[in-house]
Computed example of a mutant assay.
Amino acid sequence: MRPDWPRFGRVTLKPMAEGLSEEEWRGLYDTFRDPEVAEWNGASPLRTPFWLFKRFVLAENRRKDRLAFVILDEEGAYVGTLELYNLTPEEATLGILLKRERWGQGYGTEAVRAALAYAFGPLGLKRVRLRTFAHNLRARRAFLKAGFREVGESPGPRGQRDVHMEVRREDFSPQA
């Protein structure tokens, strides 16, 4: 793990642009195929073959409006994925997926903290936003703990309510 990669607590965010190990590719693929992870992400489990999935991810990584990372734990093992997308010079939207086996262990909160410090530091963004399901209380608590605040609700695509959250650079404390 390189010292310039974003980190907080036990996690390191490895830029996908640096290339992924076979273990990281498999972890990423399995995360997107997990039905429970997909359900909490408002999606269907991935059914694409591995080779095509890799091609899609590599193509997405070339986009100028997103930065994607794999989340590594203190041992360097794959925990999940995080991205900043809809990236502009002022703001981005945050998305995160964790392996189900790592839920409730604090890795998500730490990964979000690392991403926010990077977004407000080297990237110089002014705001980071996200949207999550209102009924996903575990995720909402983690985002609040990481520094987000709830700014509104809207109807979601599957009849559930979505909660809109954001954090602004002036309200973020990298040490908290």
Results as ranks from 00 to 15, higher is better:
residue 135 H to D: 14
residue 16 M to H: 04
residue 148 F to L: 06
residue 132 T to W: 00
residue 7 R to H: 13
residue 50 F to V: 08
residue 37 V to T: 12
residue 101 E to F: 06
residue 50 F to I: 10
residue 157 P to F: 02
residue 164 H to N: 12
residue 140 R to G: 03
residue 65 D to T: 13
residue 163 V to R: 03
residue 57 V to E: 02
residue 175 Q to H: 14
residue 12 T to G: 03
residue 43 A to D: 14
residue 163 V to A: 09
residue 61 N to E: 13
residue 10 R to Y: 03
residue 73 D to Y: 05
residue 79 V to G: 01
residue 118 Y to A: 07
residue 125 L to I: 11
residue 7 R to S: 14
residue 5 W to V: 06
residue 60 E to R: 12
residue 100 R to P: 08
residue 39 E to P: 00
residue 100 R to S: 11
residue 115 A to S: 14
residue 29 Y to F: 15
residue 79 V to H: 00
residue 89 P to F: 12
residue 38 A to C: 08
residue 85 Y to C: 09
residue 130 L to Q: 05
residue 24 E to S: 08
residue 5 W to A: 03
residue 90 E to N: 13
residue 116 L to M: 08
residue 17 A to F: 05
residue 168 R to Q: 14
residue 30 D to T: 04
residue 43 A to H: 06
residue 67 L to H: 06
residue 19 G to M: 11
residue 45 P to N: 11
residue 83 E to C: 07
residue 44 S to K: 11
residue 58 L to H: 08
residue 171 D to A: 14
residue 149 R to H: 15
residue 167 V to H: 03
residue 82 L to F: 01
residue 124 G to A: 09
residue 20 L to S: 06
residue 176 A to C: 13
residue 26 R to L: 15
residue 145 K to A: 11
residue 15 P to W: 04
residue 119 A to E: 05
residue 164 H to Y: 10
residue 149 R to Y: 13
residue 109 T to I: 04
residue 148 F to D: 02
residue 113 R to I: 04
residue 176 A to F: 15
residue 68 A to Q: 09
residue 145 K to M: 03
residue 103 W to D: 04
residue 139 A to I: 05
residue 156 G to H: 04
residue 146 A to S: 07
residue 128 V to P: 01
residue 55 R to D: 13
residue 174 P to V: 11
residue 128 V to S: 06
residue 8 F to K: 03
residue 98 L to M: 03
residue 137 L to N: 09
residue 62 R to Q: 12
residue 162 D to T: 07
residue 154 S to Q: 15
residue 166 E to H: 10
residue 57 V to A: 00
residue 92 A to N: 06
residue 95 G to F: 00
residue 120 F to W: 10
residue 48 T to P: 03
residue 115 A to W: 00
residue 167 V to G: 03
residue 105 Q to D: 12
residue 91 E to H: 13
residue 102 R to A: 09
residue 158 R to F: 11
residue 77 A to T: 15
residue 110 E to W: 02
residue 3 P to D: 13
residue 47 R to W: 09
residue 81 T to F: 02
residue 64 K to T: 13
residue 38 A to G: 04
residue 88 T to R: 11
residue 141 R to G: 05
residue 11 V to P: 01
residue 62 R to Y: 05
residue 111 A to Q: 00
residue 106 G to E: 06
residue 94 L to M: 12
residue 94 L to I: 13
residue 171 D to K: 10
residue 87 L to M: 10
residue 51 W to G: 10
residue 49 P to R: 09
residue 147 G to E: 02
residue 147 G to N: 05
residue 164 H to P: 02
residue 131 R to P: 00
residue 142 A to I: 04
residue 171 D to F: 10
residue 137 L to I: 15
residue 125 L to W: 11
residue 143 F to E: 01
residue 75 E to H: 13
residue 157 P to V: 02
residue 167 V to M: 07
residue 130 L to A: 05
residue 83 E to W: 02
residue 174 P to T: 12
residue 27 G to P: 04
residue 60 E to S: 10
residue 151 V to D: 08
residue 18 E to R: 13
residue 67 L to K: 07
residue 137 L to Q: 12
residue 33 R to G: 12
residue 159 G to C: 05
residue 31 T to G: 00
